[in-house]
């Protein structure tokens, strides 16, 4: 009577242990930080991940993430980067997919980098603080086409885009041709929008 339950108990423990080690890789993502301190994580994963400490996380990576998501705490960013092996992409995707970053345990005390910009608070002016993008005309190198299309549109009501523009095939079996067609459609879309805006400006001035 006393023997049978003890065997079952051993079996149960063995199964639990095997199961635990088998799925811990899968579940590692969901582990709470309190159940595993950073040192035990690196020890248990057999050294395939270097044992990080706070200073091992590249400050440039932290800065990169912090600039993308000014609402995030740098300490949380460092913690996440440390846990995923320093992958900015993984952290970015995690934030973007809506999963909030874990709050690091109190023992995690990294050397926080100095924020490069003054403070990620509200900008004084209404302008968003971010690098300005080049406009589409510059980006697609369309300046020559802009001037020519403006002249055509002033002389003719509809700009001539070649005969049978509507019937032109959009898809081509040829890779290079396909690429060129896509490029052309992009340019036409931008130029058409620009022409329309210019005409609107003219109409606005005339009235």
């Amino acid at each position: 009577m006393a023997e049978a339950p003890s065997v079952n108990l051993f079996q149960a423990i063995a199964i639990l242990l095997i199961g635990y080690f088998a799925v811990r890789g899968v579940l590692s993502f969901f582990r709470s930080p309190s159940s595993n301190s950073p040192s035990s994580t690196s020890a248990a994963s057999g050294g395939h991940r270097p044992a990080h400490n706070g200073s091992r996380v590249n400050p440039a990576h932290v800065e990169q993430v912090a600039q993308m998501f000014p609402q995030l705490n740098r300490r949380n960013i460092m913690w996440d980067l440390q846990r995923n092996g320093g992958s900015v992409q993984a952290t970015t995707e995690r934030v973007l997919s809506g999963r909030s970053l874990e709050v690091p345990p109190p023992s995690f005390q990294p050397i926080l980098p100095q924020p490069s910009t003054s403070t990620p608070t509200r900008p004084a002016s209404s302008q968003p603080r971010k690098p300005s993008h080049p406009d589409l005309i510059t980006r697609y190198n369309l300046s020559s086409k802009v001037s020519s299309s403006a002249e055509t549109s002033s002389s003719a009501a509809t700009p001539s885009e070649g005969t049978g523009a509507q019937k032109r095939p959009a898809w081509s079996a040829n890779k290079a041709e396909r690429q060129a067609l896509l490029q052309k459609r992009r340019e036409e879309m931008i130029l058409a929008a620009r022409r329309k805006m210019e005409e609107k400006d003219k109409a606005g001035k005339a009235s």
Partner: peptide
């Protein structure tokens, strides 16, 4: 990849919309 001032677009241009969330 342009200046986009919109409540559902992060200042870096990333779009935050439910269809992009699993």
């Amino acid at each position: 990849t342009c200046d986009m001032w919109h409540p559902n677009v992060y200042p870096n241009g990333m779009v935050c919309i439910s269809i992009l969330h699993a």
